[in-house]
Write a protein that binds this DNA or RNA. Structure first.
Lengths: 168, 168
DNA sequence: TTTTTTGTTCATTTTTATTTGAATTAAAAG
DNA sequence: CTTTTAATTCAAATAAAAATGAACAAAAAA
């Protein structure tokens, strides 16, 4: 088992770096994202110079597989940007620090992935409710209506929220 | 391995119920909450009559342990409310359907849990940055400043967001 | 009181998510 | 063309999260 980032004596990483990485790891837990991805972003965020995959592997002590997958994810999210350096064959990366794009893309991605077909499901629910009778039916129909209004509110609020996140 | 809620023939649950539960399960995944908790809330949400722990255990085919823990969580969140019925010793529950309180409490809880001490961490980061020199130092200090502005924006936005969602 | 019913806790098991690293592909250098 | 270096993929290993259920507690009924 490898040395933890938490250890107080870590010759690979400066104290600021450890703190910054920790901060992003903590934040990633709130968003339910894997630790390694947060570590990679945190490392690139504090580094004053772009880093290659191998740099990350060495400094964060993670596998090439993790580093590769993590960078792929962050690249697709737009949280990280490849930098070509004429002096090296390796692709180097730097963190994109514009909160607006980052948060917006992330939110959009999450919502699409998890809530894409909720409208269809609600419609289906409505049809099934018709099969019931009496109080159960009345209640089910009222619930579907309520959910539909929640869904509508959510969809209305989302662009507004995204805009709010975009304020510098 | 137990029968899944997804199965088309399910004599325990009506089709509307299956759909509603699925909707909440899907939603819970977006929020990173356990499936069983979403199932319980979904079940109570569609039910036109309050249900006891044992009702939930039977209809959702989950263990008493899960049901108990799930109800505890939902009770503390304020998503579910105990109903005393004079005809039964068992506590029955009904879903609280006010999105405002629910979302607000949830958000507040998550933020406190995950981001509580970020300010302290940033201060520490600032101190560590002083130990660096040259470009690394300048970059680290700029990053700390940026993070502090993110944190400030976040904290400023939170009460506003909570207010939008209806919590104090 | 003792018994029965209801509900909770928590160590263990099960399930799910993440990480690893060997095999593979890609592409530049020789 | 062959060798070397860089990067990715994916099946297997590992770690983390959630569910289970037996043991326990609390409180009403007998």
């Amino acid at each position: 088992m490898g040395e933890s980032l938490l250890e107080s004596t870590n010759s690979r990483l400066a104290p600021v770096e450890v703190e910054a990485i920790q901060l992003f790891v903590q934040f990633s837990r709130a968003l339910g994202q894997p630790r390694s991805i947060a570590e990679i972003y945190g490392m690139l965020f504090v580094s004053h110079v772009p880093l290659s995959l191998d740099d990350l592997v060495e400094r964060l002590q993670l596998s090439r597989g993790s580093a590769s997958q993590g960078l792929k994810y962050l690249r697709e999210l737009g949280a990280v940007r490849p930098v070509n350096r004429p002096d090296s064959r390796r692709v180097h990366y730097e963190a994109v620090a514009e909160l607006r794009n980052l948060a917006g893309t992330f939110l959009h991605q999450q919502v699409e992935r998890h809530l894409g077909d909720s409208a269809a499901r609600l419609e289906k629910m409505g049809r099934h409710s018709q099969a019931l009778t009496g109080a159960a039916r009345r209640h089910a129909l009222a619930r579907v209506k309520l959910l539909q209004s929640w869904e509508k509110n959510g969809r209305q609020m989302l662009p507004y929220l995204l805009k709010m996140l975009g304020r510098k």
